[in-house]
């Protein structure tokens, strides 16, 4: 979802960025800052709600900041400035994990607790929080697709690009689940690249419809995939005859969910991820251990699996026409 996050959301409010004023941590009241990829878009506005909820729940001084533009260098500069302010913990959603390695190392060297999200390959972090296992997420989308298709028929799979790690983990998770569990279904063509572009996804979907008029299902990966597929399906008048599932957000797929051109989407809730990152940071500060199977107190993170530095939840959010309005982002 890394790249698609860039293209979601609302107006970029160019905020002053850093939260002013150093707060001296009293006993156990920690200064904790969450640094996101970009401020002002819906996805991270939603994350901020989670951070604020954490602050209210725990009385910690937890705030969120980030660059006005999705830019690795700007994010690094913000963290650099933060280090000078010596917060107790920094929670980061890295735009580019590689770029942040030196500055995160510096933060840790100064005794600041560092927790990341969506960066399972980050070296200089204490813990990385992942909402779910990507393969399991892809398999789950396939389960829903298969149920909708009645377990039989042809389907096609789209990815943003063949080099996108997460997209391909989702796609392969789905394809492998189909091969193992839904033998009546068959995939047509190969994984199609859409370059995170709704129009490309549309063109690809149209072409699939031409080449395989009896196509019954689509699984998308980029947040824009289902929007493009949905448009092609709607235009072809096939909303009731095909099943479309994929990773996306209500703000992008909502109107196609309404018309039935898209049947369901899946994602994770950034508010919960923001909450859990801060929770993990607080536990480190309090000297508590994080262990396999632990309950972090948020739905989807009740029984996390811990491998190395990576904490993985089961925070799938399944959304369809009936409930997408509950997630306004």
């Amino acid at each position: 979802m890394k790249r698609s996050v860039l293209v979601i959301g609302a107006v970029s409010l160019v905020t002053s960025g850093l939260v002013g004023g150093a707060v001296f941590a009293q006993a156990k009241k920690y200064d904790m800052v969450t640094v996101v990829k970009i401020t002002g878009i819906n996805w991270f506005n939603r994350m901020e709600q989670g951070v604020k909820k954490f602050a209210t729940d725990t009385k910690m001084n937890a705030t969120q900041t980030g660059p006005a533009q999705a830019d690795a260098a700007q994010q690094a500069a913000i963290i650099e400035d933060l280090i000078a302010r010596r917060p107790a913990a920094i929670a980061v959603v890295p735009f580019s994990p590689e770029t942040l390695e030196p500055v995160l190392k510096k933060a840790m060297d100064r005794g600041i607790v560092v927790v990341t999200h969506e960066a399972s390959n980050q070296k200089n972090t204490m813990w990385d929080v992942e909402a779910f296992d990507n393969t399991a997420f892809g398999a789950r989308l396939m389960d829903r697709l298969s149920k909708c298709m009645g377990g039989s028929g042809k389907y096609a799979v789209f990815v943003g690009s063949l080099t996108s790690k997460t997209h391909n983990e989702w796609a392969d998770g789905g394809i492998n689940r189909q091969k193992a569990a839904y033998k009546g279904m068959q995939m047509v063509a190969t994984k199609q690249e859409t370059y995170d572009d709704a129009d490309k996804a549309y063109e690809r979907a149209k072409e699939i419809l031409r080449a395989y008029p009896d196509i019954k299902g689509f699984q998308g990966s980029a947040s824009t995939d289902v929007a493009g597929i949905g448009r092609a399906i709607e235009e072809a008048g096939l909303a009731g005859k095909t099943c479309v599932y994929g990773t996306s957000l209500p703000s992008i797929a909502g109107k196609y969910l309404d018309t039935g051109a898209v049947d369901g989407i899946g994602f994770w809730d950034p508010a919960d991820a923001g909450y859990v990152m801060n929770k993990v940071a607080q536990m480190v500060l309090d000297g508590k251990k994080i262990t396999n199977g632990m309950n972090l107190g948020i739905k989807g993170y009740n029984k996390v699996s811990v491998k190395g530095k990576v904490i993985t939840g089961q925070a799938f959010v399944d959304v369809d026409k009936s409930n997408y309005k509950q997630y306004p982002f």
Partner: peptide, 12 residues
């Protein structure tokens, strides 16, 4: 465009 006007998708 991205810096001064916006980075958000307009679907409505």
């Amino acid at each position: 465009l991205l810096a001064f006007v916006g980075t958000a998708y307009i679907t409505d």
